[in-house]
């Protein structure tokens, strides 16, 4: 089964955040990147050095796994310019990304795409920060604002 992967660069860039994040884990860093990528609609296949993580949603994220899967599906539908009512295509995208059962509910392709969004999200965040974040509290405040802004024009933006 495929695993969550995060770029080594991203771990370096977020090292101070991890160091100062109370009870924080490497999965938190992955989540920050993945959410940034999904909301901004940025995905980039992993190419360079990356770290293999677990192949399941850790305890803190298990309860919200469904949202992450759903966000991945919606982002990919948007990316493929597929309308939500295009029955065959919607079904096809869902089947390609989401697996019934398993540790993480993702197909190998789904995991690959989510890792790509995490990678794209890291690049998006690194572009927005002048210097790498020095502390978790500073990161969380700025991150929330950035992701909120990204959502305005990304795959989750209101149709208009």
């Amino acid at each position: 089964m495929a695993s969550f992967r995060i770029r080594e660069d991203a771990l370096n860039w977020l090292s101070d955040v991890q160091r100062t994040l109370p009870g924080g884990t490497i999965f938190d860093l992955y989540y920050f990147c993945a959410m940034a990528g999904l909301t901004a609609g940025r995905s980039e296949e992993l190419k360079g050095a990356s770290r293999e993580m677990v192949d399941y949603f850790v305890a803190d994220y298990k309860p919200v796994a469904s949202f992450i899967l759903a966000m991945l599906v919606v982002a990919e539908l948007k990316k493929g310019r597929i309308g939500l009512t295009e029955e065959g295509e919607v079904r096809e995208v869902f089947r390609s990304l989401v697996a019934g059962g398993g540790e993480n509910g993702l197909t190998d392709e789904g995991m690959k795409r989510l890792n790509a969004y995490a990678n794209g999200g890291y690049e998006y965040l690194a572009e927005q920060w002048e210097q790498r974040p020095q502390s978790a509290e500073e990161f969380i405040r700025t991150y929330s604002a950035l992701v909120g802004e990204a959502a305005e024009s990304g795959p989750f933006a209101a149709p208009g």
């Binding site: 989540y31 803190d60 949202f67 919606v74 992701v147 989750f156 209101a158």
Partner: peptide, 14 residues
């Protein structure tokens, strides 16, 4: 850690 908290747009889109 709850994606819905990041933006109201996420909850609406889902």
């Amino acid at each position: 850690r709850l994606p819905l908290a990041l933006s109201p747009l996420i909850g609406e889109a889902l």
